[in-house]
Amino acid sequence: MDADTQKVQLLITKHNTEKKALISILQDIQAEYNYLPQEALKIVSETLDVPLINIIGVATFYRSFSLQPRGKHLVTVCMGTACHVRGGPKILEEFERRLDIEAGETTKDSQFTLETVACLGCCAIGPVVVVDGNYYAQTTIRMVGPILKKYKKKEKKNEAH
């Protein structure tokens, strides 16, 4: 997706074009485009007068930024300690198996991106999976299929319209 120069400029001016607001600016761009397009980063570099290499350094350091376009649906599996001892890794494997991708990748049809997060802080209801902001508590291997089906169905519904 190409970054709209105007849009990006607006996001920068929203933070008073301050160098120190770099992370907040990147967070806004990430929220807008679902990833950080190369063009957008170049615009930020020019506008803030920060070397591009530094912007890239920040963008790749923090987990919540993605330099690759993300799929339509973001599946996040929690890998916190409590979720781990309750079988979290098996849930991740089941997602990997069904989507035929590894954690950090996006399906070929750009529908799903599978990621892990170190801890969501919902340890009591682990293992936890979040899809598009919806939290699933006490996930089991058996729930993985139906969860994916729900979002695939959404696609079919949207297509039908």
Binding site: P51, I53, I56, G57, T60, F61
Partner: peptide, 14 residues
């Protein structure tokens, strides 16, 4: 960065 004023390379990821 400092001697050659290039800033072509840098650290990425962590």
């Amino acid at each position: 960065a400092e001697q050659m004023d290039g800033r072509a390379i840098g650290f990425q990821n962590r």
